[in-house]
Simulated assay, not measured.
Amino acid sequence: MSELAAKRSAVKPTAQSLFLVFRIGNQRYALQAIEVAEVLPRLPLKPIARAPAWVAGVFAYRGAVVPVIDLSALTFGEPAQARTSTRLVLVNYRPVDSAEAQLLGLILEQATDTLRCDPADFQPYGLDNRQAPYLGPVREDVQGLLQWVRVADLLDDQVRALLFPSPPLSPALLEEQR
């Protein structure tokens, strides 16, 4: 084995992951791309009566009713701005690893960039924000801090029961109510 080949095999490659980067106001956030099922333009939604203000509504998608939350409204109480870069991002929501993934829509502003980095670059930021457990560790780069949003922690038990009833709602019922 050549000296160069020996050096290459001795250096372990870093575990890189892809992240979808978006903004809430002027702050940057990221979702791990492996949790993203699809990125759509903003679509009309059917509101859900008596739901929290940050629950944007539901829509029928490929034979299923998909609930949608506005991450800006959830985090800071202000709805996402209607920009050309505001997207409806479908994520695979799985509150516990043993649960089957369900589609959850997120309204995200400026969801147009990706970043490939080592997840270990994200470090705890020292705050215990129990009101927003989905806001995870941060990563510093030349643009400032980037905060990881953990999809599994987005919904509390009460909202999860509202958005993912058992048995699931039929898309036909959604169409009848329009």
Rank of each mutant, 00 (worst) to 15 (best):
P119A: 06
R130H: 12
I69T: 04
P119Q: 07
R62T: 12
Y93E: 06
S85G: 03
L88V: 08
D70M: 01
Q110A: 08
Q81T: 06
L71S: 02
T86S: 07
A111Y: 06
S98V: 12
N92V: 02
G77A: 10
Q131K: 13
P124M: 06
Q102P: 08
Q81D: 05
I48D: 08
E109T: 07
S85R: 03
L115G: 05
K46M: 08
P44K: 00
L88R: 05
A49I: 13
T112H: 08
G63K: 15
A56S: 13
D121H: 14
L45Q: 01
T84K: 00
P124I: 07
L74C: 04
V55W: 03
P44W: 03
D70E: 04
R83K: 03
A56Y: 03
V91D: 08
L127E: 10
G126N: 11
V55E: 02
Y134S: 02
G126K: 09
S98A: 12
Q81K: 04
Y93K: 01
S85V: 04
L90Q: 11
I69M: 10
A64M: 15
A64H: 15
T114M: 09
A132F: 11
A82P: 00
L45G: 01
A73T: 03
L108Y: 05
T114E: 03
P52E: 09
A111T: 06
A51H: 13
V58G: 05
D113H: 12
C117K: 02
G136K: 00
A101G: 13
P119I: 09
Q81R: 06
N92W: 09
R83L: 11
V58E: 15
V58T: 15
P79L: 03
L74M: 14
R87P: 04
T86K: 00
G63V: 15
R83S: 02
E78F: 14
A60W: 13
L88M: 10
Y93I: 07
L88D: 06
G63C: 15
A132P: 00
P124N: 07
A49G: 09
A64N: 15
T114A: 05
I107V: 14
Y93C: 03
Q123S: 10
A111K: 02
L88P: 09
L127M: 12
A120P: 10
L106W: 07
Q81A: 10
Q123I: 14
L90K: 11
G57P: 13
